[in-house]
Design a binder for these strands. Sequence first.
DNA 1: CTGTTAGCGCATTCAA
DNA 2: TTGAATGCGCTAACAG
Lengths: 352, 352
Amino acid sequence: MKKGKSSVSTLRDVAKKADVSIATASRVLSNSDYPVSQTLRKRIIRVAEELNYTPNLLGKMLKNNAYHAVGVIVPTLQNPFFNQVILGVESAAREKNYEVVIYSSHRSAEQEHNNILNLLKNRVMALIIISIDEKGDALRRYIDCGGRVALLEADFQLEGAIIAQTDYLLAGRLAAQYLANQGHQKVALLTSPLTKSYRCQILDGVREAFRKSNIAFSDSDVFVAHTESESDTGLYEFELGRQLVDTFLQNRKKHTAIIAINDITAFGVIQALAQRGLSVPDHISVISFDNITYAEMISPPLTTVELPSNSIGFAACEMLISPMVSNEGGSPDIRFSFPCRLKERQSVKKLN
Amino acid sequence: MKKGKSSVSTLRDVAKKADVSIATASRVLSNSDYPVSQTLRKRIIRVAEELNYTPNLLGKMLKNNAYHAVGVIVPTLQNPFFNQVILGVESAAREKNYEVVIYSSHRSAEQEHNNILNLLKNRVMALIIISIDEKGDALRRYIDCGGRVALLEADFQLEGAIIAQTDYLLAGRLAAQYLANQGHQKVALLTSPLTKSYRCQILDGVREAFRKSNIAFSDSDVFVAHTESESDTGLYEFELGRQLVDTFLQNRKKHTAIIAINDITAFGVIQALAQRGLSVPDHISVISFDNITYAEMISPPLTTVELPSNSIGFAACEMLISPMVSNEGGSPDIRFSFPCRLKERQSVKKLN
DNA sequence: CTGTTAGCGCATTCAA
DNA sequence: TTGAATGCGCTAACAG
């Protein structure tokens, strides 16, 4: 009867079969620069291959107490925006040979809490998170335990964390300015509840731009969806868009354009409009924020303000991994924000 | 020099501060049913909280040599189809308190190879994979080392793996039958290269259904994209759809409907048609396969054959985790397939 | 009920 | 150049 319950062979197995000490085997197989004779080296490598030897990272980690990995926690994998962030993180991580561990919190604070704890239990000491749990106590603890955190798009502060944010004020301004330039004088903003600060920032940006262009824009031009709680189905924001069109059409006063709070909401808006015989951009123009992949797949291709999801993931990961930060020595307290840019496509009509 | 470079406290720290033995602390903090006096129990728990004690899973694992986790490897996170699979896996895993580790191979065989190896190195001994590496040697090795594998939607066999497949033959039949029922007599199939067996199966299903309905359908009705290599940008399949419309329109012979090989390709088809003044479903009908979330977000909402992505992920995970399979005792050699069903929406016109 | 100890897989220090 | 021995954090077998 074999010894191991799992048939993964260990360093000891290799050493025994190659008739060398464990130390020597380790030195060869862990690519140490410690000198080992060619004879033994060859033999060890050969045996390792025969035995399908795969180093047990757990054992290794137990020694160094450091895992070359970063965790990523996003609210949902269903939203392409977050997928983009992940892609950014992955490419930064790959450059430095870091592992990426992906979690979805499914928009649940409890799940998020568990995810953070799991990372900690696995001694993954770097974390990039788009947090939905405003209490932040799990994160607090994570940091107390020596973890490094990059907090993306968060509504709250967290001492000791790197804070990365999109410049939503600019995003709002860009959208409004563009509509103004195209000759739109009466514009509506359709948005999910203003409970997230990024939505408020967009609104502020829009207000500011219209004020500068001398275009009237009041609270009666802002349509806010009323909803209980956010859910994880990919359809959530889409349905919101559809609902918003109802109230919009009831209160419409010669609006020629709609700003939707994000692309998926815009999809809902466009479809609901179409079903009422209003076509985009002929009858009414639509612009939104995100530039998810599908924005250019629909008809008409959606004009939208591209948010730098990829860059933000990339940069956050880089800062987190860079030696500068990973040295202990207190909180980094880095904070940076990213600009956005307009992707002009075909959902906005030029009126002038 | 301080001993711990990481400030995560260990079982030993807790034991020392609570003035008990490590064993006792372990018994309390690992929820063992071993009897410990209330006095000590309370004290240990209190100290553990004070110290932010978080068990090091690595140490634990090192003992049992088994990690309650399943790995998932998908070709890309950009495609909602795979996201659905992941969701299915996650819900099955959560039920049994398993961790889910997600990897993307970015459609690279090399990446996939590394991902599998990493899983092995981390002793994650259960894997659900949508493999793009037909050689399968990394998987072979994974299995040899005692890993359990569920191979989803694969083109190749793998001894010792659970094989799960969608019933693409049925999918093809459903689409074709539906079109026939709606009175379409001349239909085209637009597809990416027939290098994947699932695409061939769909084609076979379509052929079979049309034959039964006495509708002519020959090779000249099949339009195959020519492309070098698959890429990881979310736009890949979309662009394919757009290109296919070109060749389709050049060779069109009174086709009234198009079957696209999947939803994203259909998006490309629909947009390209629209840009040439052909509207769906008024001028031409479109049906496809997948039912990704966005299928109902576009205008017109896409009629499509829903593939059981979620169920397939769920079932695969369940089988993998279930004790039946996780007992050693040779290869399980389970093989199962899932049916699909038609989601009738508005991209197909009724002609009769 | 509590404590002591061995050992999981590995890197590393110290001896040879 | 090689090997023996130690310890990383933890559980479990055994001793008290």
